[in-house]
């Protein structure tokens, strides 16, 4: 109902149930509905993955950006654009990039003996992320500045501008598949947030459960990154807000994060396509909103993470 092509509420409903005029039908069902669905899916998935990573790494400051998931997916997509692959292959390449980055991070962390295992994992994630970022920069330098570079830049900033139902439908089952272990293991994820050693003493095969949860959250993150590009801050900020509202118990935190994340990204994406005559990249808006909110969270009573 909001956007450059004005359609009233009644016309929208009419279009949705197939009774609108042809033009409204295209705008509502082909352009805006997929975009609304996409925003909800991406927001819910990133927030759910963020809540999982935070519980697992016992650190409220981590997000899907750590472990190099985002950077790896970014590199995969940029490589796809650079090689002028079709859109479907670019998505697949982004997805593969995210999974490969996590696999490398976990292999390196496992090879490093001694020290705090979680800290090693997070630091390795930062290192691999930086490496992927450097490779991405190299591809940007080599890319055709008139054709490929704008596409690469736009994708790295995150956008739902050209999302169609063909993009969303393949991502849906992957996100759903990733959410299954997170829901099933909701109690064990609470216990894991007390630390590996205590979780083991309480009867959990911590390494195995941790691996499963990381794989699931990465699958969720990489599948939506493949659709919408790199959208930062959602996985970091939204779980905090959800935790303030419903507490840290994962059985409530996971659905609350997903719902708030979906609503949040829907609002932000609507702003992204209506604020200015041109489309504002989503990642810029989430950063502009997310950074101050995060500073405010840090400054106001530590209730979220003490």
């Amino acid at each position: 109902m909001v956007g450059p092509y004005a359609i009233g509420p009644l016309q929208t409903v009419a279009a949705l149930i197939g009774l609108g005029d042809p033009q409204a039908d295209i705008v509502v069902n082909r352009i805006r509905l997929p975009r609304v669905a996409g925003a909800c899916l991406v927001g819910a998935a990133l927030a759910a993955a963020g809540a999982s990573y935070q519980a697992l790494f016992r650190n409220p400051l981590v997000s899907p950006d750590i472990l190099g998931v985002s950077a790896g997916a970014g590199l995969g997509a940029v490589a796809g654009i650079f090689l002028a692959l079709p859109v479907a292959l670019i998505q697949l390449s982004a997805f593969a990039g995210g999974l490969v980055a996590v696999a490398v991070v976990m292999a390196v962390a496992a090879a490093v003996r001694g020290g705090d295992r979680v800290l090693t994992l997070v630091l390795t994630g930062v290192v691999i992320g930086a490496l992927a970022g450097a490779a991405t920069s190299l591809l940007k330098v080599l890319a055709d500045p008139y054709d490929q570079l704008p596409a690469i830049t736009f994708w790295l900033l995150g956008s739902l501008a050209s999302v169609t139902s063909d993009d969303i439908l393949p991502a849906l089952p992957a996100v759903a598949l990733g959410l299954v272990p997170l829901v099933l293991l909701r109690w064990r994820i609470n216990v894991l947030s007390m630390g590996d050693e205590e979780a083991r003493a309480l009867g959990i095969e911590a390494a195995r459960v941790r691996l499963l949860v990381i794989a699931a959250a990465t699958l969720v993150t990489a599948s939506v990154t493949a659709v919408a590009g790199v959208v930062g801050w959602v996985g970091l900020v939204i779980p905090h807000i959800a935790r303030m509202l419903v507490g840290p118990a994962f059985a409530r935190l996971l659905p609350a994060s997903a719902l708030i994340g979906a609503g949040y990204l829907l609002v932000v994406d609507t702003a992204a396509r209506t604020l200015a005559a041109i489309e504002v990249p989503l990642g810029i808006l989430t950063a502009v909103i997310g950074a101050p909110v995060f500073v405010w969270l840090l400054a106001s009573g530590r209730r979220g993470w003490t």
């Binding site: 109690w187 609470n190 630390g195 309480l202 009867g203 507490g247 840290p248 118990a249 979220g304």
Partner: peptide, 30 residues
């Protein structure tokens, strides 16, 4: 273990409930 501070604000009852983990199914809640 020695008394510690977890990173998230669990209720005392939640912390005690974690003791039930080995008594419930892998995918169950207390």
């Amino acid at each position: 273990p020695q008394a510690h501070t977890p990173p998230f604000p669990f209720d005392a009852l939640d912390v005690v409930l974690m003791g039930r983990t080995a008594r419930i199914g892998a995918f169950a809640q207390p």
